[in-house]
Nucleic acid binder design. Structure first.
Length: 891
DNA sequence: TTGATCGAGCGGTCTTTGCGGCTC
DNA sequence: AGAGCCGCTTTGACCGCTCGATCA
């Protein structure tokens, strides 16, 4: 298919494009540059335009040199990436340099390796007195302007990547993969949740607990503070390691419990089991880091942690934690836990900058490659081809390692280290909500600085005092739901789905952890599908979550409280600070990003400003349609409503509408009048009266939807039903249901008829009988056709046999006969028609009795008997006994 | 460094109820 | 002359979304 740009180029050949429009109306009339370029335009201006043009044709950025002093160079440089334009210019000022060539045909010659540059330029040959003159020809030989376009591969701008967009199919595949992955992750979460309920594991955990914590199980109104020592105890007694060797999660959990060491997933699950063993209402929470919803995003998307770590669906996501447990690193236990106290101490004692910068610098000077960071090593090898995201990730890795540097980890210096880590920190700080500046800052800084902290992927939610509290034992963080998003962002991971599991159910609690929904909304799957998937799981979750011994009222209250909390969070998102975010923001809008069919109504209230643009609630954005479009939705304009927006029609469409086609939607000047929904009311069509269907000017009813049916009528969308209505003498109108585009034109599509309601049953009954009769007729016709074909087949065999008998040698006769009979039997065996076996037997006996053969013995004359009649086509099929049949049109 | 802006590729939506030439 | 049949470049123009490049 021709692209729009190709079409544009086609419409704008060199001699007609804007370059030459300014240069002169008819460049061919006079081949001099002076004529091509008006006096007011300097050659440089023209050259600039040429450069621009070349750039726009894919030679962008290629080096264009206009060298009037250079000698004539061969233009045919083969495959050299060079474009030269030689323009003779001797004896005249530059402003009047004529464009001459050897053959005098074209005023300008451009040779390039990309033939299409020439190919889609509409150069025209033609006589030109100036160009043909010997003098100018000589001028050209002696003096010329050379335009060199150097497209060497090393050129910066030549590196511009060809933009390749994902096709619809690729997008669909990506979405399917995404959905499948989500389902797998949900199933995995349920497995883990189930393992957390194991009584043996819970009992073992209880036996490990210091007795002072056992009283927590009896306490009522537990607070966050009361839980802190328990979390710290767990944090310091359970370590995180990279991978699990166990196949079954249940046994892996048991092993992790025994060794007090496990994957982040296992450790988080153990913490959930521990809380549950203390009779605390606890959920296992996981970030579902599914494959990207967008094609190729995983290849280039640096947000995806799968690239950074190794295998496994859940394991893949924890970067730093995983790495920190490599043998050569210090044990987790050697690092102080990241808890509220630690954050406070960091705040008090040192700024993040001072804590990170010195060690970072010292690390950056080292050339030793740490055995710890094998993935960093890999990156170093391929530094030249690294993406920006990889560098950023490596930066963060190095910052993380260097900030908590122990003597073992040393990192080589790379170019990427030239970027100040402080700037990186500032960036992250800016990302963070200003309202939580100090604590968040320290937490993020610590997150980056500590080896213990990676992107949090698994944690627990404990129900305390009427609220679900985030408890991350891996990072020893309690009630840090506001920090999760920043941590995840800092670790270049994504927070698209946060799901809480309990009682074999699951609930999406992303809202609790995500303050900037607009950033993740486009990365989440269609909410209808996701909600449908989660609906049964949510029920399960809420039923179990409500605990034992609670009344239904309390259960409902608790469930609705959480829903309200999440809903409130969804509706109170802070205003984004960049304009682009308002383009598809679900809560807010600014006028500049509205499409042509949108309007603000009412225009207010103003919720704030972004770069001077007033911000309105998204709910104020209304869709506009033409009058016709509203009619299709069963709505009509109220009386005296004026269009709220008037659009110009395209030139081409106007051409066809210049006539007196003026109505409320298309004005005389080719404008489209648009109306909002508030200007409409339910469609009021004329009632059917006396069995007559109200029709439009074309004698039909436009059935865009059921709402478009005149009152008192019904749409009977059956094929051939109009015949029945006609036969019963009932008034009807063809139901036009849409348009079909074929051969560049639109054709109305009809589906059945519209009749008055009172005739509905009568017509349907008659239609049913008619269809039954038609079906029977169809069956009979098929049978007759099959029989006829069998006759023909057998007749041909008889003929063949007769010929063989007459002309073939005796030994061939028997074999031929046998073959024919075999073939016939085979055909019969494979025949799937409804031909009566008896009929065929009769045929075979006919054959054996040689009756048919006898027919052919004489000069057989066909005798046709009346066969079936095709009512629709008025064609009757007549057959002869020999099997020959003809179709006769009945008058 | 970051946001704004621009250009380009791609997919989706909207359009919307024939007509001119030929034969009989 | 007029009725009727047949076969037409594939619709394609436009808009919105997205992404990369560039610029301030």
């Amino acid at each position: 298919m021709k692209t729009r740009n190709q079409a544009k180029r086609k419409r704008q050949p060199y001699g007609q494009d804007d370059t030459n429009k300014e240069a002169g109306d008819d460049p061919k009339a006079n081949g001099t540059l002076a004529n091509i370029t008006p006096q007011k335009n300097t050659p440089q201006k023209g050259i600039n335009k040429f450069q621009k043009r070349v750039a726009s044709r894919g030679l962008k950025g290629k080096d264009i040199n206009f060298d009037s002093a250079s000698k004539l160079e061969s233009l045919s440089k083969g495959k050299e990436k060079q474009v030269k334009v030689n323009i003779g210019s001797q004896n005249i000022p530059n402003t009047k340099a004529p464009l001459n060539t050897d053959d005098g045909k074209s005023s300008m010659q451009v040779k390039s390796e990309s033939e299409d540059v020439m190919a889609d330029s509409d150069w025209e040959d033609g006589p030109n007195s100036n160009l043909n003159s010997e003098i100018d020809h000589q001028n050209h030989i002696n003096n010329n302007i050379s335009i060199e376009i150097d497209a060497s591969p090393g050129d910066n701008t030549a590196k511009r990547k060809p933009v390749r967009r994902a096709s619809a199919e690729e997008k669909e595949v990506a979405e399917l993969v995404h959905r499948t992955h989500l389902l797998c992750l949900l199933a995995r979460g349920r497995v883990i949740d189930s393992a957390c309920n194991d009584p043996l594991i819970q009992a073992s955990l209880l036996s490990l607990l210091p007795t002072k914590f056992l009283k927590l199980s009896e306490a009522t109104n537990l607070t966050v503070d009361a839980l802190t020592p328990l979390v710290n105890w767990f944090h310091s007694n359970f370590r995180v390691r990279s991978s699990s060797s166990e196949r079954s999660f249940h046994s892996a959990l048991a092993t992790a419990l025994g060794t007090q060491e496990g994957t982040p997933e296992e450790v988080a699950a153990l913490s959930v089991a521990m809380f549950r063993s203390l009779n605390l209402l606890t959920r296992f929470v996981s970030i579902l880091d599914a494959a990207s919803l967008k094609p190729d995003a995983d290849k280039s998307d640096d947000m995806s942690p799968r690239r950074k770590t190794g295998t496994g669906v859940f394991q893949s996501s924890t970067i730093m934690v995983t790495r920190s447990t490599k043998p050569s690193t210090s044990s987790n236990k050697q690092s102080p836990p990241l808890d509220v106290d630690n954050i406070a101490s960091i705040q008090n004692n040192q700024t993040p900058e001072t804590s990170i910068k010195p060690s970072f610098q010292s690390q950056s000077q080292s050339q030793t490659i740490s055995p710890v960071d094998d993935q960093s090593n890999e990156r170093r090898v391929d530094l030249g081809s690294k993406r920006k995201g990889d560098l950023e990730f490596e930066m963060q890795m190095q910052m993380a390692l260097s900030a908590t540097a122990t003597k073992t980890s040393e990192i080589s210096n790379t170019d990427s280290l030239n970027i100040s880590p402080l700037k990186k920190l500032k960036k992250i700080r800016c990302e963070e909500d200003p309202s939580s500046s100090s604590s968040s800052l320290s937490s993020i800084s610590t997150a980056i600085g500590s080896r213990k902290v990676g992107a949090p992927l698994y944690w627990a939610e404990v129900y305390l005092n009427g609220k679900w509290v985030h408890v991350d034992t891996i990072n020893a963080t309690i009630d840090g739901e506001n920090k999760v998003e920043a941590l995840v962002t800092a670790c270049k991971s994504s927070l698209r789905y946060v799901v809480a599991f309990n009682g074999q159910g699951a609930k999406d609690v992303t809202r609790r952890y995500c303050a900037k929904w607009y950033k993740i909304a486009s990365h989440r799957v269609n909410s209808t599908w996701w909600d449908a998937v989660l609906a049964p799981l949510k029920d399960l979750e809420s039923k179990t979550t409500q605990g034992i011994g609670l009344s239904d009222n309390l259960r409902n209250e608790r469930a609705s409280l959480e829903d309200m909390e999440l809903e409130t969070k969804a509706l109170t998102e802070p205003l984004p600070t960049n304009q682009q975010a308002y383009r598809s923001h679900h809560l807010y809008a600014i006028e500049r990003w509205l499409t042509k069919y949108q309007i603000l109504h009412p225009k207010g209230p103003i919720l704030g400003f972004c770069s001077g643009h007033p911000v309105y609630p998204r709910a104020s954005v209304q869709i506009l349609h033409t009058k016709e479009k509203w009619l299709r939705e069963g709505l009509q304009l109220k009386v005296n409503e004026l269009p709220v927006k008037v659009l110009k029609r395209s030139v081409k469409v106007n051409k066809g509408k210049v006539t007196d086609d003026e109505d409320d939607c298309v004005g005389p000047t080719g404008t489209i009048h648009l109306y909002g929904k508030w200007q409409t009311e339910p469609l009021c069509l004329p009632h059917a009266q006396n069995g007559i269907v109200p029709k439009n000017e074309r004698g039909q009813v436009d059935v865009w939807s059921e709402k478009c049916l005149p009152p008192g009528t019904v749409h009977l969308g059956f094929p051939r039903i109009f015949n029945v209505a006609k036969r019963l003498n009932v008034d009807y109108a063809p139901a036009m249901v849409g348009f079909e585009f074929k051969n560049g034109r639109s054709y109305p599509l009809y589906n059945g008829i519209v009749v008055c309601s009172e005739f509905k049953d009568m017509i349907l009954d008659a239609y049913g009988e008619e269809e039954e009769r038609r079906g029977e007729e169809e069956r009979r016709k098929n049978e007759a056709k099959a029989l006829s074909r069998w006759y023909q087949l057998l007749s041909s065999i008889v003929t063949r046999q007769r010929l063989n008998n007459r002309y073939a040698k005796p030994e061939e006769v028997s074999s031929c006969h046998k073959n024919d009979v075999d073939k016939t039997n085979d055909s019969f065996d494979h025949c799937s028609t409804s031909v009566n076996t008896q009929d065929v037997q009769k045929l075979i006996s006919l054959q054996e009795n040689d009756d048919v053969a006898q027919m052919f013995e004489d000069d057989h004359e066909h005798v046709f008997v009346n066969g079936s009649l095709d009512v629709e086509n008025s064609v009757r099929k007549k057959s002869c006994r020999c099997g020959f049949s003809i179709e006769v049109e009945e008058m």
